[in-house]
């Protein structure tokens, strides 16, 4: 007799789900080590396409794109996280105030408007105000749509922190600033790190909006990869993909560990 939790067929479905999710990624990972120049035949294990990414004819282009992607992701995630921390303090600790639900909708607006619409709107806006599309416009757009991604984990964490900790600190002669710096900020830190990592990945990931507001000559990794695969999938793209995949996995693992540590300090 199996319990009420068991449904026949659900296990195969879950396994199928994982296979569908992972098969393409694993295949690409394997083929990135293909020694052959043709993507269809297996030419033995080799690092040659990884070497090609760093030293091949397309290397300068990918290096520039990677540099842009990473610096934009760091700057956008940092700025969005700072904005989100301030916003979450007001939203969670500020009690009731006028315009609270409107502000909540505003914070989540980038999640609700389809990406392609945000992309079009940003392009039109930047063109109209005469801002040359390029690094700066990408950065501004990324900060904007990263805010909700940074906000969600930070607000969730803050919601879980009893306000008695700050009251206890104030009761024990800490000023407002001290109560924030010594008590609230360390307690919020797991949420802040999660928010930062999420915003970082989302920025690194973005293609559609970046593609609209990047202007001519400016590339991030996704737009450079997209440009390349338009002419067909080459092995060096698979090598880049595998490296980006590895970066993503490292980041998820980090954020997972951060959360685990966060749970331990929760009273």
């Amino acid at each position: 007799m199996k319990g009420v939790r068991h449904y026949p067929g659900f296990l195969p479905m879950a396994v199928a789900c994982l296979i569908i999710l992972y098969a393409p990624l694993i295949v690409v990972m394997i083929y990135s080590f293909n020694g052959s120049t043709s993507i269809t035949t297996w030419g033995g294990f080799s690092w040659r396409w990884y070497a090609d990414v760093f030293t091949g004819p397309e290397a300068p282009r990918f290096k520039a794109a990677a540099w842009n992607s990473i610096t934009i992701a760091v700057l956008a995630a940092t700025t969005a996280t700072a904005i989100a921390v301030a916003a979450s303090l007001a939203m969670i600790r500020g009690g009731r105030f006028r315009g609270k639900s409107a502000t909540f909708a505003l914070i989540n607006l980038p999640l609700m408007v389809p990406e392609i619409v945000v992309a079009v709107a940003c392009l039109i806006f930047f063109t109209t105000i005469g801002l040359t599309t390029g690094y700066l416009t990408i950065l501004i757009a990324h900060i904007t749509f990263c805010i909700p991604f940074a906000y969600l984990p930070i607000a969730a964490r803050l919601q879980g922190i009893e306000d008695t900790y700050e009251q206890a600190a104030r009761d024990l002669y800490a000023s407002r600033a001290q109560a924030f710096r010594l008590i609230l900020l360390p307690l919020m830190m797991p949420g802040i790190l999660s928010g930062f990592l999420l915003a970082f990945i989302i920025s690194l990931d973005d293609f559609i909006i970046t593609n609209f507001v990047k202007g001519a000559g400016m590339e991030t990794l996704p737009t450079a990869i997209f440009g390349s695969v338009k002419q067909g999938i080459k092995p060096n793209i698979m090598a880049i993909s595998t490296m980006m995949l590895a970066v993503s996995v490292i980041f998820v693992t980090l954020s997972y560990l951060v959360n685990r540590i966060g749970q331990r300090t929760r009273a």
Partner: peptide
């Protein structure tokens, strides 16, 4: 302000700083 009052509180759920 609470930090300028020479009174201290034992909170219901203690509010010990977990970190």
């Amino acid at each position: 302000e609470p930090n300028h009052r020479p009174v201290n509180t034992v909170f219901q759920q203690y509010a010990l700083f977990p970190h």
